[in-house]
């Protein structure tokens, strides 16, 4: 071996060492993300607010029904659906938006990515940790609500509550994906959270108004109206919740009736597919952007 090849061998000499597995890295990042979320005030405040508002809505709804509990789709479930529509997307969007952008601003993201990790592992870990915190928050909020209502002898329908919890979690995961995408794209945490709040306003209020205005001004056909409604995950959640609670979709007007007529027994699959799209597509987009953008 000549001197040059000896030096080259010294330079490239591999050191036998095993990199941690993908699940192990994701679990480590998820654990940190979950602990950070639980430590931060948003988790406690949102969970408390969700539980308190849920109880208030339930008691008011039950009182409106003359104190008699309602099985299946009732005032309580309807009230809780509206509460979930307001609180859960806001919670998930802001949590997701603050995650990557906050770490980037602190310099933590660059430090983290300087460790033996892949970017997709970090992103999935952050997502999994926040998803865990959101699931816990939704379950605690609705669980406390359901338990107190049951203790007070108000029947809310266990099946309805379970469906509502499941669909709330699906909505939270979808909104978390959107929040994480915003976080990956934004340079600063404040911009990311601001954009998340704007997105929430857009989905909760503006899209409804725009849909109504569009239907009148552009004379949208019923199938176009339904398609546009399905593009909003909150509308998907609303329709799916009502359908799951055995309520007739005619409460949603012609679009609901059209959906029932067109898809009938496939409605769960259609709503599920839409929601899955809202969970997966923004997360995939976030992954692609995250792998290309500088963490600095």
């Amino acid at each position: 071996m000549n001197a040059i090849s000896a030096q080259a061998a010294a330079l490239d000499q591999p050191v036998p060492r095993r990199a941690p597995s993908v699940p192990s890295t994701i679990a480590a990042v998820a654990g940190r993300s979950l602990r950070d979320a639980i430590r931060s005030r948003w988790f406690v405040l949102y969970t408390l607010a969700f539980a308190v508002l849920g109880l208030a809505v339930s008691f008011v709804s039950a009182a409106g029904a003359g104190g008699a509990g309602l099985s299946g789709f009732g005032r309580t479930t309807a009230g809780l659906i509206n509460l979930v529509l307001l609180v859960v997307p806001l919670m998930a969007l802001t949590a997701g938006a603050a995650s990557i952008a906050g770490d980037r601003e602190r310099g933590m993201l660059a430090y983290l990515l300087a460790q033996p990790v892949r970017r997709c592992e970090v992103l999935l870990g952050v997502y999994a940790g926040l998803a865990g915190a959101l699931v816990a928050s939704v379950c605690l909020g609705l669980g406390v609500c359901g338990a107190i209502l049951a203790a007070r002898g108000m029947r809310t329908g266990a099946g309805s509550m379970l469906w509502l919890a499941g669909l709330s979690i699906a909505l939270a995961l979808g909104m978390l994906s959107v929040g994480v995408l915003i976080s990956v794209l934004a340079r600063r945490a404040s911009v990311a959270v601001g954009t998340a709040v704007f997105t929430w306003l857009l989905l909760v209020f503006v899209s409804d108004l725009a849909l109504m205005a569009g239907a009148v001004a552009m004379r949208l056909r019923i199938q176009e109206l339904l398609t546009l409604a399905l593009l909003n995950p909150l509308q998907v959640f609303k329709m799916w919740s009502l359908h799951a609670a055995d309520a007739s979709l005619d409460v949603l007007g012609p679009a609901g009736l059209y959906a029932l007529d067109t898809w009938g027994p496939w409605l769960h699959a259609v709503f599920g597919g839409c929601m899955l799209g809202w969970i997966v597509l923004p997360l995939v987009a976030a992954g692609l952007c995250f792998s290309r953008r500088s963490p600095l």
Partner: peptide
């Protein structure tokens, strides 16, 4: 401990 886990 966190960074130790990342390093396997």
């Amino acid at each position: 401990r966190f960074f130790g886990r990342l390093k396997g």
